[in-house]
Amino acid sequence: MPKDATLDRHLARIQRVVDHIAAHLDDPVDLDRLAGVACFSPYHFHRAYRYLLGETVAETVRRLRLHRAAGTLLDSETAVARIAQRAGYGSTAAFTRAFAERYGRPPGAYRDTRRSFPFDPSEGETAMPEVTYRTLAPIRVAAVRHVGPYMEVGRSFDILMSWARARQLFRPGARSLGLYYDDPGAVAPADLRSDACLEVSEGITGEGEITIRTVAGGPHAVLRHIGPYAELERSYAWLYRTWLPASGAEPAEAPIFEEYLNDPRSTPPAELITDIHLPIREFPERRR
């Protein structure tokens, strides 16, 4: 069997585990069961998973549960005790410690942040976000399509990064992007379309779920978001509600995309840096 075909089968087995974890996030972690999902010997499964995904099964489960908890805190009035229980913690105190360690503040204080946009007006205008203008060259990327809630796009990134890691395609400066085609306020969560993308060089070809495409270049307005991905919606709200009407810019016929400037597996959510790129027809100062 060709080497690439063997590797694809290996990656597919690990991806079945990632899908199983995401679909059974409320279940206890059973490594023997997960090894069976991957058709691996329990003696070798955990090592194969860790080397391909860059984190342990326990770390994946913890990260996904806390990510879901952050979204629940911002989007609902669900009691913290219930969120803690669903995240697999035996007490609210244990959940509060774990959440604060990862997100930089306890759950109640984190929930309170939804009252503000990504700046605090009480701090004055210097605290307001800044939009910069950039002219981008086209970006050649490998992409995996995701259909469903944007909060769950991580599955497509897991597929993409496992594929790239196994083929040693990571290179210094390669850009990680997310393309988002639909407005979550207008399209049902189950129908939202997005692409997880990794910049690749010429000569790399797609296979299976991996496709090769080009992200359009040209003028863009860029808003930097610092903080958890669960809070990105507030930056989008400010960009479209406050900045765009006053800017004189006109959006172009291309999807908005995010560029992720650090690794969510090794970076505390409060320190994550995301550049939101809004394609525009031309820079406002150049309009006639």
Rank of each mutant, 00 (worst) to 15 (best):
M1H: 12
M1D: 08
P2K: 08
K3H: 15
R9L: 14
A12R: 05
R13G: 02
R16K: 10
V17A: 08
D19K: 07
H20W: 06
A22M: 14
H24M: 11
D27S: 11
V29Q: 09
L34I: 00
G36T: 00
A38E: 00
S41M: 11
F45K: 03
F45R: 00
L52R: 06
G54Y: 05
A58G: 13
T60K: 10
R63S: 08
L64D: 07
L64E: 08
L66N: 01
A70P: 05
S76L: 15
T78M: 15
R82D: 11
Q85E: 14
R86L: 15
A94G: 08
T96I: 04
T96P: 07
R97D: 13
R97K: 14
A100S: 10
E101L: 14
P107I: 03
R111L: 10
P118C: 11
D120R: 13
E125D: 09
M128I: 04
A137V: 01
R140W: 08
R140S: 06
V144R: 04
R145Y: 07
H146E: 10
E152H: 13
E152T: 07
V153Y: 12
R155I: 00
F157S: 04
F157C: 09
I159T: 02
W163L: 02
A166D: 03
L169Q: 03
L169A: 04
R171I: 01
P172A: 10
G178H: 02
Y181E: 04
D183K: 12
A190M: 11
D191L: 15
L192Q: 01
R193D: 06
C197D: 02
L198G: 00
E199Y: 12
S201M: 15
S201Q: 14
T205R: 13
E207D: 13
G208N: 08
E209N: 07
I210S: 07
T211D: 14
T214K: 15
A216I: 00
P219D: 06
R224T: 00
R224D: 03
H225Y: 07
I226N: 09
Y229N: 01
E233R: 10
R234Q: 07
R234E: 03
R241V: 02
P245Q: 04
I256N: 08
I256W: 11
I256P: 07
F257K: 04
E259R: 08
Y260H: 10
Y260V: 05
L261P: 03
E271P: 10
L272D: 01
T274M: 15
L278Q: 00
F283L: 13
F283R: 05
F283V: 00
E285C: 08
R286H: 12
R288L: 14
